[in-house]
Amino acid sequence: MEVSHNITWHNSIVTKKDRREQNGHESFILWFTGLSGSGKSTLSNAVAKALFDRKINNYVLDGDNMRFGLNKDLGFSEMDRTENIRRIGEVAKLFVDSGQVVLTAFISPFQNDRNQVRELVEQNEFIEIYVKCPLDECEKRDPKGLYQKARSGEISGFTGIDSPYEEPSDPEIVIETSLHSLDDCVKQVLDYLVVQQYI
């Protein structure tokens, strides 16, 4: 995508550092990635509530929700999926600059797309969380009935069935939702943030 040559970046008087100091905490991206049905939305919202209870300003960007507005013009081709993640990465970067924690729940199946989002922000501002769950367990859950539609041929190019999911090569956190309760999964994320001095 070509950038216009007739634009100039305008620096803000209030800086990211200023906003962090006013908020009283760091700002960063918690990027939840995993198969459909793995528990990304459930876990990200539960973590958001736990952070909110600690008075940490945060917001959840959910994959389906974003397709009702900002990304409603995108389909599910590989090109559209890449553009979907590019846009979300740019929005997430704005949240980090605003001094808030942003949690994103997107399948984001391609490693290169996730890497490009990581490169948008500074070191230690992108925390990749692999919400790991076996495909057969995701299919059993099938909260939206999408796996059934994919198996019957109603949906094509569905991640995990006839479109690949590239597991994170070196995520900061791996949460196995099929092995742990939601409370335990939330605790794993919070423990990491505490140990790494994010919160």
Rank of each mutant, 00 (worst) to 15 (best):
E2W: 06
V3W: 08
V3T: 12
W9L: 12
N11F: 09
S12D: 06
T15M: 09
K16L: 10
K16E: 13
K16M: 10
K17A: 12
D18W: 00
R19G: 05
R20K: 15
N23Q: 13
H25C: 03
E26L: 11
S27I: 00
F28P: 08
I29F: 04
L30Q: 06
W31G: 12
W31H: 07
F32K: 09
S36I: 01
S36A: 09
S38V: 01
K40S: 07
T42E: 14
A48S: 15
A50H: 12
D53T: 06
D53H: 10
R54P: 05
K55H: 08
K55W: 01
I56W: 13
I56V: 15
N57G: 11
N57P: 07
N58D: 11
V60H: 06
V60T: 11
L61V: 01
D64S: 08
M66D: 01
M66A: 11
L70T: 06
N71G: 05
K72L: 03
D73K: 09
D73A: 08
L74M: 03
G75R: 05
G75M: 05
S77E: 06
E78C: 02
E78W: 10
T82M: 06
N84R: 04
I85R: 07
R87P: 02
I88C: 12
G89W: 01
E90L: 10
V91L: 11
V91P: 00
K93A: 14
K93R: 08
L94E: 11
L94K: 13
F95G: 10
S98G: 06
G99P: 02
Q100W: 02
L103G: 04
T104S: 14
T104H: 04
A105N: 08
F106N: 02
I107Y: 00
S108Q: 02
F110W: 09
Q111C: 11
N112V: 12
R114P: 02
N115Y: 09
R118L: 00
Q123V: 04
Y130D: 07
V131R: 12
P134W: 03
L135G: 04
L135W: 01
E137V: 15
E139K: 05
E139S: 04
K140I: 00
K144V: 00
K144H: 01
Y147R: 04
Y147H: 00
A150H: 01
S152C: 08
G153L: 02
I155D: 09
I155H: 07
S156L: 13
S156K: 15
F158M: 07
T159E: 08
T159N: 04
G160A: 04
P164I: 10
Y165F: 05
E167R: 07
P168Q: 02
S169Q: 15
S169C: 10
D170V: 00
P171F: 00
E172Q: 15
I173W: 13
I173V: 04
V174E: 15
I175F: 00
E176C: 14
E176M: 09
T177Y: 08
T177C: 14
S178Y: 10
S178V: 06
S178F: 12
H180C: 13
D183Y: 14
D184G: 09
D184Y: 14
C185D: 15
K187T: 05
Q188A: 06
V195K: 15
V195H: 15
I199M: 09
